[in-house]
Amino acid sequence: MLEVSLRMTRPSRPETGPASNQHLAHLLGLVAENRDKSAFAALFEHFGPRIKGFMMRKGADSELAEDLAQDTMITVWRKAHMYTLDKGSVSTWIFTIARNRRIDWARRLKGVQFSDITELEQPSDDVGADEVVLASQESETVKAAVEKLPADQKQVISMAFMEDMTQQEISQNLGVPLGTVKSRMRLAYQKLSKSLEALQ
């Protein structure tokens, strides 16, 4: 189990501090352009323990969690040139990769990897400037907005993102119709995306 002391020592992420998005994006840029290994090590120092914590929360033991954290970082090395600000914060981008690595491991599809399906090989998303999420504050803002969701909406968000449950599984687990699960997800998404838009 996670110890309280870990929570206490969790570094805060001030906007201009060493782990600001700007700083992380700078490190990632060095990896992409110069194949800079010390920048890569710095990224791993920041994200490694976080990804390990995430993997262990999902049921991986310490060894597997580190293995998946390394997998994640190797993908970061490989795809660093595809990161652009329009993909959200560096943290969002890396956690999305970590999530994919976990799903690849959990699902073990016989044909393609799940990440082959979802990691689009696009150098840039080409979205309009008005749709770009402001990276630096987004995580705090979203967390606050999630806390404000009605309990039933918060529950489906957490079951989807934390427990990896499909809509059908959530519906069975809660004993509510699939349509109800979908409408709770819709409402939660609409509220949370409004809070992100408010940042722009």
């Binding site: 914590g53 995430f54 956690f95 999305t96 995580s139 979203v142 967390k143 999630v146 993102f161 934390m162």
Partner: peptide, 10 residues
């Protein structure tokens, strides 16, 4: 972005 905010809360 919503998901990573939830996930990185660990």
């Amino acid at each position: 972005a919503i998901g990573s905010a939830v996930m990185e809360d660990e």
